[in-house]
Amino acid sequence: MWEEYLFANSVEHALELLARYEGRAQLIAGGTDLVLQSQRGQCPATVMVDITRIPGLNRIEERDGFILIGAQVTHAQIAASPLIRDKAPILAMACSQVGGPQTRNAGTLVGNVVNAQPAADGATALFVLDAELEVATQEGRRWEPISHVYRGVGVCTINACREMVTAVRFKPLVNACGCSYQRLARRKALTLPTLVVAVVLEMTGDTIKAARIAIGPVAPTPYRATDAEAHLVGKKAEESVFAEAGQLAAAKAKPRDSLIRGSSEYRTAMVGVLVRRALAEAAQECHRRG
């Protein structure tokens, strides 16, 4: 039961409200997860502090070598953003797969991250982009790598009763990069993924210069397949190499058996398949762009 629904008019105001209610207040953006969690008794806060009317948090912009996405930006806005589609297409692809159009209109990328659900399309893409989150507290602001923020299923180091994520930022992808976003799900819309793989590949000629592979939700948090990434560097871009990388990535997957979303055995095997496919597709795109 909520006792109050408040609109913050600035970041400072939001933080002040959080402080004033001493743990009874929580930030709300799109609310697509939070409303249900609250109805199901999974969110103890009774005061909602709505951040969607704070000026300045709705921007998608390139500044000081980074792309910045404000805390109010929705999945739909990211999926449609020319800047994101040009400089971080992997994120646009991921955001376009979330739920249905209505959910994408309301749900925000930052909210999705703070909620720390492993089956998060946007967050997986942010892992591959090495994104950082701007965390505002009454003491000041800091940047935290996304991998530090995720701690487990639904567990995030950001204290939503005290702190606020105001933006996410990452370096734009260089022109020669190829991207691929692979998604396996029980149906084609309105569903959380069984598995997603986000890949960004950089090549010089036929040789892989750098590879980034993020995978979710086959562990408590999305993760980077670092062994596979390291294995790829300096290798020729070919099917056998991609398959080896797939195997290395699969070795790090720890999916649970799910009656609804598939067995651990199947999902682990699919990590290998989708990583291989993502690498092949990304390599092709490198060639096209190259």
């Binding site: 249905g100 029980r186 149906r187 084609k188 819309a189």
Partner: peptide, 8 residues
């Protein structure tokens, strides 16, 4: 419980 969407 997954009833087909238009895309399915």
């Amino acid at each position: 419980y997954f009833i087909p969407t238009v895309l399915d």
